[in-house]
Design a protein around this nucleic acid. Structure first.
Lengths: 214, 214
DNA sequence: TGTACATCAGTGAACGCGCGTTCACTGATGTAC
DNA sequence: TGTACATCAGTGAACGCGCGTTCACTGATGTAC
């Protein structure tokens, strides 16, 4: 060993991935420069290549970490005991204005979707592995009685991801709100199909209004 | 007038937007260079600025055109007369392998979502206007009896957009297929909530299998 | 205990490259007289 | 009818700039003897 304490290199590497993930989400992976990421950590460009072989290798790690953060989020949403579905509770928090406004700390898949789609195979393999870990974590979280809800796993992810992206693509915050609300309603009817058609029966849990269509 | 026939300039402009839209979808708007787009049309970079003030202005037009193409697609999907919902019929065609494979000619919103989200206001205004035109077109297409289905407009768009993006983010084509299938099932239960829980009742319309969860 | 050498995370200048944008110029056609 | 000038879509070189990656170097610490 030399010059630095044991664990130092691993710590630097982790900081680089963290900083890169934030910047990737905020600005996109393409527009993020390695030099800027390193500078933000008080380091210089050259050092980057003591940790990663290329920028793409960094993207692989960032995607993995991003998905793991999403898994942590999903685990943090308790299964409701009042008859609401877990999917509804997830959508409530995910399809929200704070999440919409904070892309830098929000869902990595929503921030990087098409960039991951165009990236080469290693990135997509990392993404797929992450999604499988996510599916396994949700299965464990929901327990054995919720296989029906788990069968909607992909649709739930797609609706949430699509909803937050869509809400960020429009200029007017009120339209964004309408989109988020309509998608939360959609998540409800996805797993709890009895509640639908016409206005939501009652503002029982949160007093939420029914979807307007503008 | 001079040198070129009337309508020539408008024709060139249209060709530039068309070529740019393809490249934006295929490679992303950021990674697409103006020089390459112009070269593909047998023109040179300098000429670009006789048509557009900046690359961003081109993005505004490309987004508008992309959404208009999506509207044309939605109009092309007939309202089924056999009890299936229109949303189900749309998802059938949108959440498909050919669409997944052909990002260059596919849905512009799915290809450019986060880039539009990060673009400045003019781009997002164009996107929002496009989505309003889309909503109006769907309302007209469905007719007055389908207000219930229209209330799921945003959720349907989000589920489709999220589903195709998600399917492109994974490396294994079989996983991608599972995702698309699960999202098609999701679209079905979104508007037609009686059909759900456990396997789909019957392979009546297409013999589609129920969602596997892998 | 003392000295020579090896290690290796980090430095910072340099590389070749492609980008968006600008600008003086071209040249076929239309217009003024 | 003939000539000088205006128009303007398109040219292509040049601008300044930032990027990913390379590489010879640094220097504090660990190891060999």
């Amino acid at each position: 060993m030399a010059r630095y304490k044991p664990g130092h290199k691993a710590g630097t590497r982790r900081k680089v991935v963290d900083a890169a993930l934030d910047s990737f989400r905020e600005a996109g992976a393409g527009p993020t420069s390695i030099a800027t990421v390193m500078q933000g950590l008080g380091l210089t460009v050259g050092g980057f290549y003591r940790h990663f072989g290329s920028k793409e290798e960094l993207l692989v790690e960032a995607v993995t970490k991003g998905v793991d953060q999403s898994i942590t989020f999903l685990r943090s949403v308790p299964v409701p005991q009042d008859g609401r579905s877990w999917s509804e509770a997830v959508a409530e928090r995910y399809l929200s204005s704070p999440h919409r406004a904070n892309i830098a700390r929000g869902c990595a898949l929503a921030a990087l979707g098409p960039e991951i789609a165009r990236a080469d195979e290693r990135v997509r393999v990392a993404c797929e592995f992450g999604l499988r870990r996510m599916q396994a974590a949700v299965r464990e979280h929901l327990g054995p009685r919720a296989e029906g809800e788990l069968s909607q796993f992909w649709a739930l992810i797609a609706l949430n991801l699509g909803g937050i992206v869509l809400s960020r693509m429009v200029a007017d915050p009120r339209t964004a709100e309408d989109i988020l609300e309509a998608c939360r309603d959609g998540a409800r009817s996805l797993v709890n199909p009895s509640v639908r058609q016409g206005p939501v029966p009652d503002g029982k849990h949160t007093g939420r209004r029914s979807a307007r269509s503008r």
